[in-house]
Write a protein that binds this DNA or RNA. Structure first.
Lengths: 233, 233
DNA sequence: CAGTGTGAACCTTTTCACAGCA
DNA sequence: TGCTGTGAAAAGGTTCACACTG
């Protein structure tokens, strides 16, 4: 496959480029410059060029990138030329929402199983699926060749569920539970914490409020407001 | 308030420490070392000490940090000594789930309004709330002193909603829609993209599969598997 | 003497700036 | 001529290692 290692930061942006390219392909544009792609993805053009250069030399100097070709290359690099069966653990609010989320299917992620421990939830229908019991996780992983597990349980249950996932052979976990989970080095974990994001916003919001209090006071606050990053990621 | 600017990366970890400290306080521990806090937060101890040193010298050499005191300081730094009223735009799957998510309330974020454009959703009850119309967004922001807006709409609608939020005076936005939104530099935006996270996992999963194919082939793959970061953030 | 606080080294990521090519 | 691809510089973040202190 692709030669040198792609930096982590770049991998994190490839899905952004992918989305922009999909939108662009729909409009019928044949080629795109790094400048335009950068605008669509919300980054700067130097970053786009550097990132894409890790995948290979897919651009044409003086012209730009061929949309269809680049789209294919980014998809291939991300491993999205195949479908990925996904299992969700936890059929609460969030588990429900994710199971029904159309965006997953559109991007090649098929939710093939949902499990929970609550007897009141086991057996419930969600879309085309029936909620299974957590004890059947390993069987479901085997049966559907699941590659990625998603944890949507309360924080207390997260580690136990993660252990079962790893035992069942999963090596990629997306964790929505507000808890740190410990797994072996062969397992990739990504964490999405909804409250954390709000807390980070609260931090910057607070600073803005504090600055304004100063500004509305005696001396003009000459310091630029743009000291606040628009995006903290 | 607090003096020197806290690095962005540190701000991003403060909620992690906060959660660990809350758990710890519940167990009754009075003090904690950077080593133990690090384990609870899933980072290393040097990072913990550096991070906390930006808030001030709150530790005691040879002893550690006073849990209750540090908890208070982290809360204060993050601006969590007050409640933050939140408005959600988009009452679909995700909007529903977030409205009902207990974790927000527990951490000082109160969902005070939900709006949508779909006539089938406007008027619907979600918890204690009634879904309002998007046109009433500004009124709701005023009435409830909303500080943070959350976008849970489809991608196409995100920019329009963001524009309304900014026009209504919001300067902090959490965007769950799969789209880049453009706002002025005075507005902080954080983005959570569910599909993006899965795509990143797919990338690493694919590489693992490729490596294993090589390993199970002729020559022993001497390259270490630990080239895969457990967490990509 | 255990554990914080922090300079200094190191590594990653971003940005700059321009040579080189279609 | 216009835009890519990329070295080199700058910025930001992490880790090391140890002086210092309660």
């Amino acid at each position: 496959m692709s030669q040198r290692p792609v930096p982590e930061a770049t991998v994190g942006r490839l899905p952004l480029y992918l989305r922009a390219l999909v939108d662009l392909a729909a409009t019928g544009e044949a080629t795109i410059s790094s400048e335009t792609l950068a605008a669509a993805a919300g980054v700067n053009s130097a970053k786009v060029r550097k990132d894409l250069s890790f995948l290979g030399s897919y651009g044409t100097r003086g012209v730009g990138y061929d949309v269809a070709y680049l789209l294919h290359q980014v998809r291939r690099e991300l491993g999205l030329t195949q479908d990925w069966p996904v299992l969700i653990a936890g059929a609460g609010n969030l588990g429900h929402a994710l199971s029904n989320y159309r965006g997953f299917g559109q991007r090649g992620f098929r939710v093939v199983a949902i499990v929970d421990v609550d007897p009141g939830k086991v057996g419930e229908r969600i879309g085309d699926l029936r909620v299974g019991h957590l004890d059947d996780l390993a069987a479901a992983v085997d049966e559907h060749q699941v590659a990625i597990g998603v944890i949507c349980t309360p924080g207390e249950a997260a580690q136990g569920v993660a252990d079962r996932m790893v035992a069942a052979g999963l090596r990629s976990i997306l964790n929505f539970a507000p808890a740190v989970i410990n797994v072996g080095p062969e397992v990739s974990v990504r964490k999405v914490d909804l409250s954390t994001e709000l807390q980070i916003l609260a931090y910057y919001e607070q600073r803005k409020a504090a600055l304004e209090a100063v500004a509305s006071g005696a001396e003009a606050a000459s310091a630029s407001l743009s000291a606040f990053p628009a995006v903290g990621r």
